[in-house]
Simulated assay, not measured.
Amino acid sequence: MRVSCFARTKPSDASLEGIAQWTIGEMADERTLLQAIAGNDLVFHLAHTTMPGQSNTDPVKEVSENVNGSLLILKACVQQGVRKIVFASSGGTVYGIPNIVPIAEFAPTNPLAAYGISKVCVEKYLYLFRHLYGLDYHVLRIANPYGPYQSPLKPQGLIANVIHRGLNGMPIDVFGDGSIIRDYVFVDDVVQALIIGARYDGTEKVMNVGSGEGRSIADVLNWVESALGMGSLSVNRRDERKVDVPTNILDIELIQRETGWRPLIGFGEGLARTIAWMRSTHSL
C-alpha cells in the first residue's frame, strides 16, 4: 500500500520517519498538491492553518487559506481520479451553542468561530463535488482529540497544554470559571474512526466522533493533577472568550449504529498514555 502525506513541514519526531512519502508545501500550491495526490485512490483531508480561538481575528484569512485551500484539494482529487475523500471536520465548533445536548448530526450549524464556519463550508463543497463530479466523501465531525504527538505549545489542545505545564511547574491559563464542558476523545479512537470512514459505503455522509461524555475544564484539571501526582496545579484565571460555547458533547449513536465504531480508550487510560509519552520526549 502506498501512503503519501502532504504537509507544511515534515514531522520532527524520528518515530514518524519512514511511514510515508512526504511532500512539503502549502494548500495554495496547486502543482505540489497534484504531485502529492497523484496515484492515490483515497485522500484524508486533515489540514487547517488556523486555531478556533484565533480564527475570528482574521476571517478573510480563514476563507482564503482554508476554504480556498480545501477547494484546491477537491479540484486536485477530481483531476487525479481520486475515488473518495475523508474530511476531518470539527464537532467542537460547527454546532455553536446547542439547543439539545448531546448534539446529533442533524442539529443546526451556527458556529461562533470562523474556524467552524470554514469547516461547514468545506462540508457543503464536498456535497457539491460529489454531485458534479462523482467524488465520494465522508465527513467526520471530531470532538476534542488528545493523546501522544499533540503539541503542547499551540493554543489548542487543553489536555496537552495542561500536562506540559504541570510537568514543568508552569501556570495554566483558564478562560472563565472552569465550567466550560467539552467532549475529549483519544487519538487512537479518532484514527480508527478515520479508517472506518474510508471503508464505509453507506448513505450517511456526516458522522460525529467523540467520547459521548462531557468534562468541564475544572474536571480535566483535577484528573491531570491526580495523574501527575506532583501536587496542585497553578492556574491563571482569564476572562471568558466569546468563541467558547458553554457545552459541547457529541451524540455518537449514528456512527455506532452505522459502522460499529465506539471509543475504546477511557479518559483515565488516555491521560496515562499521554503523560507517559510526554515524559519520554525532549519537548518538556
Results as ranks from 00 to 15, higher is better:
Asp173Gly: 04
Asp189Asn: 14
Gly214Trp: 08
Phe6His: 03
Ile196Val: 13
Asn99Pro: 05
Val3Leu: 12
Ala276Asp: 00
Leu42Phe: 08
Gly92Ser: 13
Arg141Ser: 08
Ile97Met: 08
Glu62Ser: 15
Ala113His: 05
Pro108Glu: 10
Arg273Lys: 14
Gly157Trp: 02
Arg31Ile: 13
Ile159Phe: 04
Gly96Cys: 04
Glu62Asp: 06
Val206Lys: 05
Ala107Ile: 06
Ile172Tyr: 08
Pro246Asp: 11
Gln21Met: 07
Trp277Glu: 01
Glu105Gly: 01
Tyr146Lys: 13
Leu228His: 04
Asp219Ser: 10
Glu17Cys: 03
His138Ile: 06
Ala28Gly: 10
Asn161Met: 05
Met170Thr: 07
Gln156Glu: 11
Gln21Tyr: 04
Val43Lys: 08
Thr109Phe: 02
Met278Asp: 00
Asn56Ser: 01
Arg31Val: 13
Ile24Pro: 07
Val78Arg: 04
Asn56Ile: 02
Leu42His: 11
Ala107Ser: 14
Pro102Gly: 05
Met207Leu: 13
Val235Tyr: 07
Val86Gly: 03
Ile252Glu: 03
Trp22Pro: 15
Lys84Leu: 03
Ile217Trp: 04
Thr247His: 10
Ile265Trp: 11
Leu16Cys: 04
Phe175His: 13
Lys242Arg: 13
Met51Thr: 09
Leu74His: 05
Leu167Cys: 05
Ala227Gln: 13
Glu204Pro: 10
Glu269Arg: 11
Asp201Arg: 14
Phe267Gln: 10
Asp136Phe: 00
Trp261Lys: 07
Leu167Tyr: 03
Ile37Cys: 06
Gly260Lys: 15
Gln150Asn: 07
His48Arg: 09
Asp29Ser: 07
Asn40Lys: 01
Ile180Ser: 07
Asn99Asp: 09
Pro263Arg: 06
Asn222Asp: 15
Val122Trp: 02
Ser211His: 04
Leu158Glu: 11
Gln150Glu: 09
Gly266Ser: 15
Pro155Ser: 08
Thr9Val: 06
Leu74Lys: 09
Gly169Ala: 05
Gly214Tyr: 09
Ala7Tyr: 03
Ile117Asp: 05
Leu126Gln: 08
Gly176Lys: 09
Val245Ala: 12
Tyr184Ile: 07
Gly178Pro: 00
Ser55Arg: 02
Ile196Pro: 12
Asp13Ile: 00
Thr281Pro: 01
Gly53Gln: 09
Thr281Ser: 10
Lys119Ser: 09
Pro59Thr: 03
Tyr115Ala: 03
Pro148Asp: 15
Leu46Arg: 15
Ile196Gly: 11
Val243Ala: 11
Asp239Pro: 00
Leu254Tyr: 06
Cys121Ala: 12
Thr57Trp: 03
Gly166Thr: 00
Gly260Ile: 07
Gln35His: 11
Ile275His: 01
Gly53Ala: 10
Leu112Glu: 05
Gly157Thr: 08
Ser4Trp: 00
Arg182Trp: 02
Phe175Asp: 15
Ser211Glu: 04
Gly25Glu: 02
Gly81Ile: 00
